[in-house]
Each structure stands twice: as structure tokens, then as C-alpha cells.
Simulated assay, not measured.
Amino acid sequence: MQLRRHILTLRLVCATGMALLVVGCTSQPTTSTSSQTGAAPPTAFSPTDVAWIQLMIPMAERAQALTDLAPSRAASPALQALAAKTGTQLHQDQKRLHQLLSLSGVPDSRPHEGHNMPGMVSLPTIQRGGTVTGKAFDKLLAEALHAHLTQSAMLCAGEQTQGHAGKAKELAATIAKNTTEQTSRLNEVSPAKPSSPGGATAG
């Protein structure tokens, strides 16, 4: 029996200063085997957990693709150092996210392949990053990273409040903490304030 094509809707709702992640999708496989009891165990992965993981993976991949360009294209040594540290963290995040997806029992169908979601570094931005150097690259990198970090923090806040699986919520808390530190550092070394909330070129 073929898996039904799931429909994923992500909506960030601001309420009392808290960003909430609201997810709607069809049933997803989880690690829970006690659905008949009406109470899933703490390790079960809910549709919200799975949707968060499936979105965070391409978010991290795109951002790392841009930070990987920094050593040969950035003019600011401080921004180069930040990009290197952020890139390493993004690589570690991807490994842990893939491990969680495997643990959830959901196939790695990559539902966001080729998409440009809010805050996600767009493919045109990555392409442009490969053609510019110096201050132009610094500005592009700073704006795209700011958008990525801002959106990641909101998504992680949503997972922490709306998610179910303990391991997923723990990773969300870790990523949120690292994101706060990286944002603070980016604000210190950024060549200019981001020109728009999205930061990256739409594609």
C-alpha cells in the first residue's frame, strides 16, 4: 500500500510574545505502539515533531552551503570565523536531525526539496554567493544568516511548546540556545543591519 501524500502546513502564530508552530498533516508513522490506550509514550514522535525535523534539515543544509563559501569570499575575518563556527554547528545539527528522523520511523522523503521557505537561504542566494566577494559577500552572508537564525529560533520555540517527543524537544532547545549565541555574535560582526526580515533572495 502506497503512503498517502501528506500535506504540510506550517503557520507561526505570535501570542503573548511566544512563536507557536502549528502543523497539519496526514498520519505519520511514529515509534508509539500504544495508540489503543489513548496515551502515547514520551518517546513517540508526533506529526509536529516530524514536520519540524523535515523542515530543519533543509534549513540547515542551505545555510551551511552559504557558510562554506565564506573562507574564500568573505572580507571580514570576524565574519569568516563566525561562518566557520556556524557551519560546524549546522553540520552537527543535520546529523542529529537525521538520527531523529530515522528514530521516528518516517522515511526521508524530503518534502521541502527545492522549496524556499521563510528564513531558508534560497538557491538564488547561494548561487549569488558563489559569484561575489569582499563586502558584497559579507552583506549577503550576514543578511541570509540573520534570516536563517531568526526563523530557526521561532521554529525551535514552536517545537518546544507543541512537540511531543522528548528527544526532538531537547534538540530544539539545544539549537535554540546555539541560535541565540550565534545571533548575538552576528549582530556584533555584521557589516550592516539586515534590510528585510527575509534577508535572502526569493526563488
Rank of each mutant, 00 (worst) to 15 (best):
A60V: 09
P77R: 02
R11S: 11
K139I: 11
P111N: 02
N116R: 04
Q92K: 13
L141W: 07
L141D: 04
M117C: 03
P107L: 10
Q36L: 15
A74W: 03
Q2T: 12
K85P: 00
A19P: 14
T16Y: 04
S35N: 06
A44R: 03
V132E: 01
S190H: 03
T43N: 14
S102F: 01
I7P: 00
A136T: 15
Q127K: 14
L149R: 01
T133W: 07
Q151V: 01
V22Y: 06
P118R: 08
L155D: 11
G163W: 10
R110G: 00
K169W: 06
Q92V: 05
M154V: 06
T183L: 15
F45P: 06
L3T: 08
P47L: 01
S72P: 00
L97T: 08
A202L: 09
T43S: 15
L101K: 06
I126D: 02
P77S: 11
Q64E: 12
R73A: 02
L155S: 05
T86M: 07
W52H: 03
K95E: 15
A19Y: 06
T31Q: 13
Q80F: 00
L90P: 12
L155A: 05
H98F: 07
N116E: 05
V22R: 11
T9W: 07
E170A: 08
T43Y: 11
D108L: 07
C156M: 07
G87I: 02
L186W: 00
L55C: 10
A157W: 04
G198H: 12
A83R: 00
L149P: 01
N187F: 03
E188C: 13
K193H: 08
Q151H: 14
A70D: 04
L171G: 10
M117E: 14
Q127H: 11
T88S: 12
A144K: 08
M18R: 15
L140T: 03
Q182G: 00
S46R: 09
A40C: 08
T183D: 04
G38F: 06
